[in-house]
Structures are given as structure tokens and as C-alpha cells.
């Protein structure tokens, strides 16, 4: 952290040159300083992820060695990378099954959540109706309500209905608008599309649904990708709810399988890190595939107010 403050100091002192020439030079110094800062901080940001990877390739005993080795090697099993840590018995961490289960939850959530969020976002952005302000306030208000608050009542309701050890309590909420934040995001985005497009469609005789599908949706593609990814990440990582609603091992998801692995084999540290690595790989893959749209998507959402 001390590195960061130092850099800021430089920034404060650096300006104050006069003339065009020195202005350019100041700018260059700024760019160099920014770049160095970014490189150092991003290395720190990646450190914990690297640490998982490093530890996943070591012998369980080497993980605790003092001094710790930065590269995945130890004194007991020197140099050799223990790739066999990744050969985890399916009875302990059933990667493919957990992957399938996680997708079984996340994919419907993404589809339902995104489509209902689009429909709600459209209504809030474009249509006039009674009670709009009130409903929108309720919607934005729910964004401020921590989901943890409704955890216990919802849990009791689902168990009373008898839907336990099933994915329904995890999926069904996403049929309901896919989260206020996503509705809000899409509404903001739809508002940036010129209204003339809608009106042209209306003149052509298109109904509201047709307008939404053929005009609005194609023009908010990047926002849709953003929302899909956000829903994917939320559902994929939602440990607390999965912990509560999923019981049997064959229904475990990736994060749940990982927690269970900690619980049962917290002794097998190398295996634990290998399992952690396996858990984050699908997340990373999806993100890397979508990140180009993703960051740009939010940047272009025009998150103004």
C-alpha cells in the first residue's frame, strides 16, 4: 500500500512546468507513473489467484514450509510439480457432475433473469402507466435491501412448500425480474436509444412486444451480455443459498462441492487448492470469453444517474 501513496505524491508534485514542451513531458511522466502503478497493483491483484495455482502443485507438507517458496516447489518433493493433485477422486470432488449441476442452475437463471429484466426494463424506460413512479421506487428500493434479510423467511416458505434438495428455490426467483440492479441497468441503457426508432416501428404497425424484440433488443446487445454475465456470476457463486437449499451430494454445485471438500478433507491441503483451482476455472473461462463485451458494455451503459 505504501507504494501507492508514494506514487500519488509524485503526482501532486509533478505539475507546475510551464510551456508546451514541458507539458508534454509532464504528460509522459504521468503516463509512465500510471503504467508502473497499474502493473504493480495488478500483480498484487493476481497474487491470491497465483497462490491457489502455486499451492495446487505442491505436496501438502510443502505448503506450510517456512520460509514459503514462491514457486511451486518444496524441500520434501523438490521441483517436481504435483499435477496428480488434480486427479481428485470423483467421490470427493466430482468435477464434471458439479459443473453440470452449476450450469443447470445458472443457465436457466441467465435466460429467465435476462429476459424478464429486459421486459421490466423496457416497461420502465419506455411505457407510461399509472403507478410507474411508485413501482420504480419499490424496485430501486429492493436493490437496497440486503438479500440476507429475506433468507430466513424464504427458507421457511420453501421448506413449507416442500421444495427442498432441489434447484427450484435457486432458479425461480430469477423468473421474477432477475434482480432490481439488472432491471435498472437495462432501463438506463434502453433510455439511451433514440425514441424515434420505436415510433417508426409503431407507425409500421408493430405492437409493444414486436418493438421490444425487433428494435430494442438488437440495440442493447452489449447491455444484455453484461446482465447475463452478472446473473451468471451471482448464481454461480451464491454459496449461502446453495448451502441452505441443496442437500444431497449428487446435487452439489461447484462452490458447494468445494466447501464440502474443505469440510471433509481440510487435511488434504494440496487437493483443496487443486479443487479451488478447478472451481474458479469455469468462472475465468466464461469471463475471458465475454470480457471484451463486458467491460465495454458497462462502460457504454452510460451509467449517468
Amino acid at each position: 500500500m505504501s507504494g501507492i501513496t508514494n506514487q500519488t505524491d509524485i503526482k501532486i508534485k509533478a505539475p507546475g512546468f510551464g510551456g508546451l514542451q514541458s507539458k508534454k513531458r509532464t504528460k509522459m511522466i504521468f503516463d509512465i507513473v500510471s503504467f508502473t502503478c497499474i502493473v504493480i497493483i495488478s500483480a498484487l491483484v493476481l497474487l491470491p489467484i497465483y497462490w491457489i495455482f502455486r499451492s495446487s502443485l505442491m505436496g501438502s507438507l510443502d505448503i506450510f514450509l517456512w520460509p514459503p517458496s514462491f514457486l511451486p516447489m518444496g524441500t520434501i518433493n523438490p521441483v517436481e510439480w504435483q499435477w496428480e493433485n488434480y486427479i481428485i477422486r470423483p467421490t470427493s470432488y466430482d468435477f464434471w457432475r458439479y459443473l453440470g449441476n452449476s450450469l443447470t442452475i445458472s443457465v436457466p437463471c441467465v435466460i429467465f433473469g435476462t429476459s424478464t429484466a429486459i421486459s421490466c426494463g423496457y416497461a420502465f424506460a419506455r411505457l407510461q402507466f399509472r403507478g410507474k413512479r411508485f413501482l420504480f421506487a419499490l424496485c430501486v428500493g429492493s436493490m437496497l435491501m440486503p438479500a440476507a434479510v429475506t433468507l430466513v423467511p424464504l427458507y421457511m416458505a420453501w421448506t413449507a412448500i416442500g421444495v427442498v434438495d432441489s434447484y427450484l428455490p435457486l432458479i425461480l426467483p430469477f423468473l421474477c425480474g432477475g434482480g432490481a440492479f439488472n432491471i435498472f441497468l437495462l432501463r438506463q441503457f434502453i433510455r439511451t436509444i433514440p425514441k424515434e426508432l420505436d415510433e417508426a416501428a409503431k407507425i409500421d404497425g408493430a405492437g409493444y412486444f414486436r418493438t421490444l424484440v425487433s428494435i430494442i433488443v438488437p440495440s442493447i446487445k452489449s447491455a444484455i451480455i453484461v446482465v447475463s454475465l452478472l446473473i451468471f456470476i451471482t448464481t454461480w457463486n451464491d454459496l449461502l443459498q446453495q448451502l441452505i437449499y441443496i442437500h444431497s451430494r449428487e446435487n452439489y454445485t461447484m462452490v458447494l462441492g468445494l466447501t464440502a471438500f474443505f469440510g471433509t478433507f481440510k487435511a488434504d491441503f494440496a487437493g483443496m487448492f487443486a479443487a479451488t483451482m478447478l472451481t474458479i476455472i469455469p468462472c475465468l473461462t466464461i469471463y475471458i470469453l465475454g470480457q471484451r463485451y463486458f467491460v465495454e458494455g458497462i462502460v457504454m451503459t452510460g451509467m449517468k444517474n
Binding site: Y155, V164, R249
Partner: peptide, 18 residues
């Protein structure tokens, strides 16, 4: 059931009547 989640799992089952 994994040991760390054992009690809450059983309670969930109990609350759901199974």
C-alpha cells in the same frame, strides 16, 4: 452429508418434514 453442514442440513430436512 459433509460434516460441517451436517446439523443445518438435518434441520432443513426436519423443517421440510422429511
Amino acid at each position: 452429508i459433509a460434516q460441517e453442514e451436517y446439523s443445518e442440513r438435518l434441520l432443513t430436512m426436519a423443517a421440510g418434514g422429511n
